[in-house]
């Protein structure tokens, strides 16, 4: 699993990446009440707004951590957005994206580096 400075995690399987927000991000956001996911087949450049996560208090943008095409979204989050708080790094995943350039993962942090990053 790789991590971004925007507190997303990315798990690569072949050329498909599963994306979600980190446990740290979920804790910081607080109680999540709504997740707006992208549409399947939507194309994103790295850094584009891809999803929105709303906590009780505020809305936060989720950026596409890599460039590519959405292949699958976690539809369970529509009725159970609280899953992002309960299990952010597994069942609370957001979407899967087919990478157009796998080298974009190279600059991302591993778990140890991310841990150091959030402790800064």
């Amino acid at each position: 699993m790789k991590y971004t400075e925007d507190h997303e995690w990315v798990r690569l399987d072949g050329d498909i990446a599963t994306v979600g927000i980190t446990t740290h991000a979920a804790q910081q956001l607080g109680d999540i009440v709504f997740v707006e996911l992208p549409e399947v087949d939507a194309e994103f450049e790295k850094g584009d707004d891809a999803a929105v996560v709303e906590s009780v208090k505020a809305a936060s943008e989720i950026y596409a951590p890599v460039s590519g095409t959405i292949t699958k979204i976690n539809e369970d989050l529509e009725d159970a957005p609280e899953m992002v708080n309960a299990d952010p790094q597994a069942a609370g995943w957001f979407f899967q994206i087919k990478l157009s350039d796998t080298s974009e993962l190279d600059g991302m942090m591993d778990e140890a580096a991310y841990k150091a990053f959030i402790e800064d």
Binding site: G30, V33, V56
Partner: peptide
């Protein structure tokens, strides 16, 4: 204080 450890939802 914007929230305590309980969190906004549970405090409410």
């Amino acid at each position: 204080p914007v929230q305590y450890p309980l969190g906004v939802m549970k405090e409410h």
